[in-house]
Design a protein around this nucleic acid. Structure first.
Lengths: 168, 168
DNA sequence: AATATCTTTCAAATAATTTTGAAAGTTCAA
DNA sequence: TTGAACTTTCAAAATTATTTGAAAGATATT
């Protein structure tokens, strides 16, 4: 495979993976481009490479910085901003997990807690089914949240090693 | 909170959680409705409760069955099909992980393997950056895939217990 | 303070996804 | 074999999400 073909396919693939695991497709594509750029790039260069508009490019890069996946870099004597990606993929994964726990799990736990307070009678089947479902979901979500919280504090190999031992 | 309000909020919340963690919003809503139904429901009942069309309802239920989250139930003397949800949420989570590994991780690993074969010279910075990125991503994705594969073979409490010990 | 360079915003346009509903398909009982 | 009851399909419509680009906002330079 030629370099240019591989590059396009890489941006495409990382875009797909990202969009199915928590960051938007364009965010993942910009991140992919920066990942394979030896030097940091400016907005103009990202626009040009990915054929996206200035507005889109700007917003996407801001989002990536909010997620902690891209850093701003100022070059001496340069007016415009340059950007480089976090290249340690385990760090990237940890960062995504951290953000998603905050953005998507925590709010749900709040709602579940509220839902457990539903008025009603324990002998009513429908009421019981609702309370049971909420209770079970809360239990699993809390455990998953805990597991993720711990997992991102570990070194990637420590995590694998631990799981591996359990099955030896 | 009144039962009906809690029910709607539950369907809404499970819909949101589902759609951000791998199944579509409507799939998650139908699943939510079935989760809190003491008896299995027929297509007509699901359509009525969620105000969705017959076509959508049918396709969504098929998808849920494909994912292993909903089962068909035949009632004696009844022509139409009834559906009930898997109510063990840990099983649901495991099932979703299993499907997503198959649908979303495995194909990516294939592409990454291909990409490592890109032609080029090790001294070319761009070429090296691409190969490095692919190699690092592959390593993390493989480890995550392994971790998920092992995690779904464990009891939920065993998983938590193990992680807990690591931090005692 | 005027100008050039770069960044941000956001309403409108475009694209992608989801939903609908009517028609076709299936199954079964009479 | 007919038709009633139910399920499936899929093109078109509706809805959602993303992208654009021009205008407004910054910021540094002369």
């Amino acid at each position: 495979m030629k370099y240019n073909e591989a590059k396009d396919k890489f941006i495409q693939t990382w875009g797909t993976l990202g969009s199915s695991w928590g960051i938007s497709r364009t965010m993942a594509q910009v991140h992919a481009l920066l990942l394979i750029s030896p030097e940091s790039l400016c907005t103009e260069e990202v626009m040009e490479e990915l054929k996206i508009s200035r507005g889109n490019c700007n917003m996407t890069i801001r989002d990536l910085m909010d997620w902690g996946l891209v850093y701003k870099e100022l070059k001496a004597g340069e007016r415009r901003e340059f950007f480089r990606a976090e290249k340690d993929i385990w760090k990237v994964a940890k960062q995504i997990i951290k953000e998603r726990r905050k953005r998507e799990i925590e709010p749900v736990l709040g709602v579940l807690e509220e839902l457990k307070q539903v008025e009603g009678n324990k002998t009513d089947k429908k009421h019981k089914a609702l309370v049971d479902a909420v209770t079970n979901i809360e239990s699993v979500v809390e455990k998953a949240d805990f597991a993720l919280e711990k997992a991102i504090k570990l070194d990637e190999n420590a995590l694998i090693g631990t799981l591996f031992k359990l099955f030896k």
